[in-house]
């Protein structure tokens, strides 16, 4: 059984001049226990909103969120608090996410306190254990966030996310703000925790080479919708959707001549006014007439894509 299942999840925001922005449109996906699902896409594709909506940090406009078989879409109060024990989040900016006036010990213990778990002494012991798990020195508990580097702050945020032994963590651009030489430490840490603790992770990033590295499966989003989803290996080596192909092609690297690359023309369309039909048709190098008129459904079992092209079919 899936740990998390999203059924036709949607989130709309009011936009400028009475318009609505469809940040997440009709997203269905599952995450198995212990699985890492990477979500990749450019700005405005809805990947962060997807994460926030499934965490119930923002209210969905439609669809259902099932966690461990329980519909949590409409949960409130004590019910929601109970579910939150199992659903945690790590954000991009560890400094913004850590209260500068609290010691690291207080920050990491806070979820335990909120959930009313343990005594003062047992919480302190748990904090010490968590700091050790994320590779911080024992004395860190008495210090403040500003005394730590960016990578260490992200370790603090991870320790806090682990405090309640969650089953699922949403990592939203969790390594994007880190220096390259520190990024790999945190990627290794997250991967190691996942192996040791059997965590499932929704790993959101704009960086396809990071996503490829950490994910079992990958979902590619464009303007609020999943355009392709499947096993990481298949997405990387045999992408079906022209957008996925372009994203892969746009990763700068040595030894690629310009003729071999797909460079998309134009910018991302305005999310409050997405193009009709397939939202990607305005930039698609393989656009056909039907693409302007009818939106392709996500088709396929393990590896699915939403594209009218014959070669994109499962």
């Amino acid at each position: 059984m899936s740990l998390l299942e999203l059924r036709n999840l949607s989130k709309t925001y009011p936009g400028a001049g009475g318009s609505t922005v469809q940040a997440v449109a009709d997203v269905s996906l599952t995450i198995a226990p212990g699985e890492v699902l990477g979500v990749v896409g450019e700005s405005g594709c809805g990947k962060s909103t997807l994460g926030r909506t499934l965490l119930r940090l923002t209210e969905p406009s439609g669809g259902q969120i099932l966690f461990d078989g329980q519909d949590i879409t409409g949960l409130r109060g004590a019910g929601l608090k109970a579910v939150r024990r199992n659903l945690q989040v790590i954000f991009q900016d560890p400094f913004g996410a850590l209260n500068p006036r609290h010691t690291v010990g207080q920050i990491v213990a806070e979820p335990l306190l909120v959930q009313g778990i343990g005594s003062r002494a047992t919480r302190a012991a748990r904090v010490a254990e968590l700091l050790q798990i994320v590779g911080l020195p024992e004395g860190a508990a008495r210090r403040y966030p500003h005394e730590f580097s960016g990578g260490q702050r992200q370790r603090i945020a991870i320790a806090r996310a682990l405090a309640l032994e969650p089953k699922l963590i949403v990592a939203d651009e969790a390594v994007s703000a880190l220096d390259v030489s520190v990024q790999s430490q945190i990627i290794n840490l997250i991967a190691g925790l996942r192996r040791r603790l059997g965590l499932a992770i929704l790993f959101i990033s704009h960086d396809l080479s990071v996503i490829r590295h950490v994910s079992d499966r990958i979902a590619v989003m464009y303007l609020g919708r999943i355009v392709e989803i499947g096993p990481a290996e298949a997405i990387i080596s045999a992408p079906r959707h022209p957008y996925t192909q372009a994203l892969l092609s746009a990763i700068p690297r040595a030894g690629v001549s310009r003729a071999d690359r797909i460079v998309l023309k134009g910018d991302l369309p305005d999310p409050s006014n997405p193009p009709p039909g397939c939202a990607f048709h305005t930039r698609c190098p393989k656009v056909m007439d039907i693409c302007r008129q009818r939106r392709p459904e996500l088709a396929g079992a393990r590896h699915a894509s939403a594209c009218h092209l014959p070669e994109a079919q499962p």
Binding site: V180, S181, V182, S184, H213
Partner: peptide
């Protein structure tokens, strides 16, 4: 040398990255 080795793209998916210890 360490920087070129540590980036995800230079490693097989899922493998532990040859991390550089410490911070900048």
């Amino acid at each position: 040398e360490a920087l070129l080795r540590t980036i995800p793209a230079a490693n097989p998916p899922g493998a532990d990255l040859p991390a550089i210890p410490g911070s900048v």
